[in-house]
Simulated assay, not measured.
Amino acid sequence: MSEMTIKTPQTLEELKRYISNADDNTYILAGGTDFIIKMNKKNIYEGTIIDLTGISKLNYITKEDDFIKIGANTTFTDISESSIINSYATCVAQAASMIGSTQIRNCATIAGNVANASQAADCIPALICLNAKAKIMNGEGIFIEKSIEELVLGINKNSLKKDEVIVEILIPIRNINYKSAFSKIGSRSSVTISKLNMAVSLKLGKVIEEVSIVIGSLGEKAFHSTICEEILVNKEVNTELFESFKEKLKYQVDLAIPNRKSKEYKREAILGICDEIIGKLFESSIGGNSRDR
């Protein structure tokens, strides 16, 4: 009779040993909230589960070597409440705070969210927006790094090999002139899967010197909107610029889903997201936190 075997490594050395024997029926979990849904939908009743949550050394948030480093087992509750993340990667903290319910945020982890590669994932656009990378270990104990953009391939598809596992997320630390924000829309934004989300990061001087705009739930994977980035860069911040930005966002929706029934809804929804992000990014001008990244 077929059965499900569960492995619970306590160290990276044990994890290395388990993943060295991984095959098509091996499932690596770091929280497991997405896998439970997958099990039910795909009738997965046999194979090997490797549960990372026993590796306590993979639960941390630190600031070192010009990076914020987040262990694979770090939950979204920890991320949303972290003073480091809120100060230096604000859009990631905001995305983490909007994922699922309180119970899900207490269990779901950042590595699991990235590896699951849902087109509606909230943290992925925020991480891509900040040029984040994943540190990956394979079955030989060798570590490599990949950008999140390179790692996420499409709907529930990633570029990880069978014997590879994410052990850390790295976010470059930027200076005080950078700000970032995230927003989403769902039927109830705090507990539902995103119908549309967006992360924006910019470097602001007398003009917008650099900008990164990543939109999720508008295709098979989150993507940079280069046409929207181009309209903002090297421009002074004013009402006219924001109006042009909104028109370009609607055009981006048209390009991304030209024949989708949801196009008209998302053309309007993205304007609401835009307004919220603009409010968050320029809050400092009316007394907000100038350290937001």
Rank of each mutant, 00 (worst) to 15 (best):
I270G: 08
S101E: 07
Q10N: 14
I61E: 05
I144Y: 02
G47P: 11
D51L: 01
E230W: 00
E13Q: 07
Y45F: 05
K246W: 00
E14C: 04
I110Y: 09
I257Q: 08
L241Q: 05
T53K: 15
F67K: 09
G288F: 01
K221Y: 10
D65K: 14
E13V: 03
N158H: 13
A111R: 06
I37N: 06
L29E: 12
N234M: 05
K133C: 04
N289W: 00
E283G: 03
I55K: 07
L202M: 15
V165Y: 05
K16A: 01
N156P: 00
G288H: 03
K161G: 01
V191L: 12
I227R: 13
I215Q: 11
S97F: 07
L202I: 10
S284T: 07
I85T: 05
V114C: 01
S212L: 02
L130W: 01
N21P: 00
T62Y: 11
L241N: 14
K221N: 12
N73R: 06
G32L: 06
C91D: 13
I144E: 13
I208D: 12
M137S: 04
L130C: 09
N116W: 09
G32A: 08
V214P: 03
Q94A: 01
K157H: 11
A96R: 09
Q252W: 00
L271D: 01
K162D: 08
L255W: 01
E243L: 11
D292G: 10
N131W: 04
A120Y: 15
T53S: 11
E149S: 09
I227S: 15
T48F: 05
I49F: 13
S187I: 08
S212V: 00
K280I: 00
G31L: 10
K203A: 12
I110Q: 05
K42I: 01
G100D: 00
A120N: 13
E247P: 00
Q10Y: 03
S244M: 08
K184T: 10
E283F: 07
V237L: 14
T226N: 14
N259E: 15
I99S: 05
